[in-house]
């Protein structure tokens, strides 16, 4: 695999190499979740699948949105829409650090020339009621990934523990490709018949969303949607586990969790619009956390969450 040790030439090549690497290591390569999320962790393949005892190994790209980070596409490093690469393996394998370092090599980082460091950075998501211990990984002083051993998600102890890796793709790729402004980064191969840069694809959308997020989003509507999503999440989980139509035990965790994701994103938008005061902020975060916890409680009552009728009978 001599081409793997060569420097990648584009943003997408880095993504493709990560996909190939983690596929070779046995991960299911999933596709992005089809909803607006703040980070790859929100994908149910991480949040929900880190719960319960069923083994799991998945990797995926997740487009992520942080409305407050919008800079109209002008800041070299900050975007309101960006990509994360996410790996979740349960139980965390003993050689996860080595596996991770292998992935850096796969995207062209020569660990004999660079200084790779694991620097303490504990992770906590107040909205997900989740925390874990781990590091931010530095390459020559730059943070290129988050590395976390999940200890609790949705208020549940993680047993076994999942190992989570999150790569900030734009930043990592800019470093590997030697690019100073994200908008200048080649998205596809610069030798392609139609070469496209990151800016060709996202400069305009960054402008549009920045204006939308900061000044135009209809806050009354967002507030209403927040309330609705919250109510719907609770309502879906309140249904009896037994589906009267099929006679099966069907707990609607994922549909309910979708509403939790929605509420979280709506809150982020409201925050960017500056209509949430410091004190209200905590209250909103608490409300989303309540939803996340309710979904986690429900998920461990499902087959994917490790539920068996026998165990339940005991």
């Amino acid at each position: 695999m001599s081409e793997m040790t060569e420097k990648p030439r584009s943003f997408q090549e880095i993504i493709l190499r990560l996909q190939a690497y983690w596929a070779a290591k046995g991960c299911a390569i999933l596709q992005p979740y089809d909803m607006e999320v703040g980070a790859g962790t929100f994908h149910p393949a991480t949040t929900l699948r880190s719960l319960g005892t069923t083994p799991w190994a998945a990797a995926y790209v997740q487009p992520s949105r942080r409305p407050t980070d919008g800079r109209y596409g002008e800041n070299p490093n900050r975007l309101q829409h960006y990509y994360q690469y996410q790996v979740l393996i349960k139980p965390s394998p003993p050689d996860l650090q080595d596996l991770y370092l292998g992935s850096l090599k796969a995207i062209g980082i020569d660990t004999d020339l660079h200084d790779i460091r694991f620097v303490e950075d504990d992770w906590e998501s107040p909205t997900l009621g989740a925390w874990g211990l781990g590091w931010e990984v530095w390459c020559d002083g730059m943070e290129v990934s988050q590395f976390t051993y999940f200890q609790q998600v949705g208020g549940h102890d993680c047993r076994p523990v999942s190992g989570e890796l999150t790569y900030g793709l734009e930043r990592l790729a800019m470093y590997v490709l030697g690019i100073d402004h994200v908008m200048d980064m080649p998205f596809n191969d610069p030798q392609s018949p139609i070469p496209l840069t990151y800016g060709d694809i996202f400069k305009q959308t960054e402008e549009e969303y920045s204006r939308h997020n900061f000044d135009a989003a209809n806050t009354a509507m967002l507030l209403k949607h927040f309330e609705e999503a919250e109510a719907e999440c609770h309502a879906l989980l309140a249904h009896d586990a037994l589906d009267p139509k099929t006679g099966k035990r069907i707990i609607m965790v994922h549909p309910a969790y979708d509403q939790c994701i929605k509420a979280s994103h709506l809150f982020n938008l409201l925050d960017a619009r500056g209509v949430i005061s410091v004190t209200e902020r905590q209250a909103y975060i608490g409300r989303v956390r309540t939803l996340a916890k309710a979904c986690a409680d429900a998920f461990v009552q499902t087959t994917a969450g490790g539920y068996t009728a026998e165990a339940a009978a005991q």
Binding site: P93, Q151, C158
Partner: peptide, 8 residues
């Protein structure tokens, strides 16, 4: 000050 479990 803070400890963790890992794997199984």
């Amino acid at each position: 000050p803070k400890a963790m479990r890992w794997g199984n």
